[in-house]
Simulated scan of single mutants.
Amino acid sequence: MAGLGSRLQSLGYDVAIAANVAYAPLITAAGCEHRELPGDMSHLVSPAAPGKRPTGADLRRYMDELGDYMDLAATGTLAAAESGAEVILANAIAPYAYDVAEALEIPAIGAHLQPTEPSAAYPPVVLGTARSLGPAGNKLLGSLVSAGKAPYDAPSARIRKALGLGKKSRAAADRLRRKDNSPVLHGISPTIFPRPADWRSGLSLAGYWWPEAEPGWQPPAELLEFLAEGPPPVFIGFGSSAALDADFMLDTVRRSGVRAVLQGVEGVSGSGVIGVGAVPHQWLFPRMAAVVHHAGAGTAAAGLRAGAPTVSVPIYTDQPFWAARITSLGAGPQPVPYKELTTERLAAAITQATATPAYAARARHLAAVLASEDGTAPVVAALRAAGKQG
């Protein structure tokens, strides 16, 4: 979103992004205004140990914590919009943004990084599975999930009441937006995810919204030295989920016999291994022989953009969906589900990814196609249309 915001700023739009305080430097570096959302999402994205399934108690605790976070986010969204807005771009887990827009009498446009519309083409991504139930089953289950309870239902109802709006459930509001064919932009490449035939016309694939290059950023000297010392290494990192500890990564590297860059475990070093902190993926990934990650929407896109074969270790929500897309496109081997993860299985997948030339060739082809796509133009068109309607 910060990358998209930067491009919109360059076209004359004033862009403010509502996000947790941890993202303020990223937002302001992109030239956008940061409006703070209270709360901290980081503790909600740390899974159980590799190879372990969450218990019922784990899931109940997670849903309670997620509900508390959403309540804070709804309050922050209202405050952010009241600071001044003429249109709101709302992500997939912020339905209360539509309630705020309704009260302020301004347009709201969906801006999603995952396909959430019920469809025959895929099972609902919120369930954390890529297993198809067939066209009829996918569509039915997607519709049931969309109409079911969600952790942002209570915050949406509270915001509507606080704003003096009439009662309307989140599910009912979703149905009304579908009936009205309200626009939803998806920051997804149609090359990676072809548009489903049963989508309504208001749903569009804009193309990826790439992050901006950090101005003045320079790679650490130790990392440059490491890259120059031998053949391209393998990247292993799990972003904000902090899914794997250093010992697990090091054992995996030893078993696979590759050089490796380990993100999130700074200070770790050894023969053929270096640990790093935050390094821009658009700089690092093109220098890798393969990338190993959780297949989140942004990281999966970054790996494809870099033309690097991908080993996916999906954990939850939309990650199995993106992992399956990468495999189906021929850009990497079969995913290694986190709940079945061992160092032996991950090492075997890394060996397969780096020793199969077809994966690298296919990844390079996809990267060339992605380089020709422009994800900003459809957003500008939608903003202009919203301005004319307003």
Score class of each variant (00 low, 15 high):
residue 7 R to F: 00
residue 11 L to I: 05
residue 11 L to R: 15
residue 15 V to G: 14
residue 18 A to P: 01
residue 23 Y to F: 12
residue 27 I to C: 08
residue 31 G to Y: 08
residue 31 G to E: 04
residue 34 H to D: 10
residue 35 R to G: 06
residue 37 L to Q: 05
residue 38 P to S: 10
residue 55 T to I: 08
residue 64 D to C: 08
residue 68 D to T: 14
residue 70 M to Q: 11
residue 73 A to W: 01
residue 75 T to F: 07
residue 79 A to V: 09
residue 83 S to I: 02
residue 87 V to P: 03
residue 88 I to S: 04
residue 90 A to G: 05
residue 100 V to I: 11
residue 100 V to T: 07
residue 102 E to I: 02
residue 105 E to I: 00
residue 107 P to V: 07
residue 107 P to G: 10
residue 108 A to Q: 01
residue 109 I to T: 07
residue 114 Q to I: 11
residue 122 Y to A: 14
residue 123 P to S: 08
residue 131 R to F: 04
residue 140 L to S: 09
residue 145 V to R: 06
residue 151 P to K: 01
residue 151 P to I: 02
residue 154 A to F: 00
residue 159 I to P: 01
residue 160 R to Q: 11
residue 160 R to G: 03
residue 164 G to A: 01
residue 167 K to G: 13
residue 168 K to A: 07
residue 183 P to V: 03
residue 188 I to F: 02
residue 199 W to G: 06
residue 206 A to Q: 02
residue 207 G to P: 06
residue 211 P to N: 13
residue 218 Q to G: 03
residue 218 Q to D: 06
residue 219 P to T: 10
residue 224 L to F: 02
residue 230 G to K: 13
residue 233 P to W: 06
residue 233 P to T: 09
residue 236 I to C: 06
residue 247 D to E: 15
residue 247 D to V: 13
residue 249 M to T: 01
residue 254 R to D: 12
residue 260 A to V: 01
residue 264 G to L: 02
residue 266 E to M: 12
residue 272 G to S: 12
residue 275 G to S: 12
residue 278 A to P: 00
residue 279 V to D: 09
residue 286 P to T: 12
residue 289 A to S: 14
residue 289 A to N: 04
residue 290 A to M: 06
residue 295 A to E: 05
residue 305 R to G: 05
residue 310 T to F: 00
residue 318 D to Y: 03
residue 321 F to I: 04
residue 331 A to G: 13
residue 333 P to T: 12
residue 336 V to T: 10
residue 339 K to E: 14
residue 341 L to H: 07
residue 343 T to P: 02
residue 345 R to M: 06
residue 348 A to W: 00
residue 353 A to L: 04
residue 353 A to W: 02
residue 360 A to D: 09
residue 363 A to K: 05
residue 365 H to L: 14
residue 370 L to N: 07
residue 377 A to G: 04
residue 377 A to E: 15
residue 382 A to D: 04
residue 387 G to V: 11
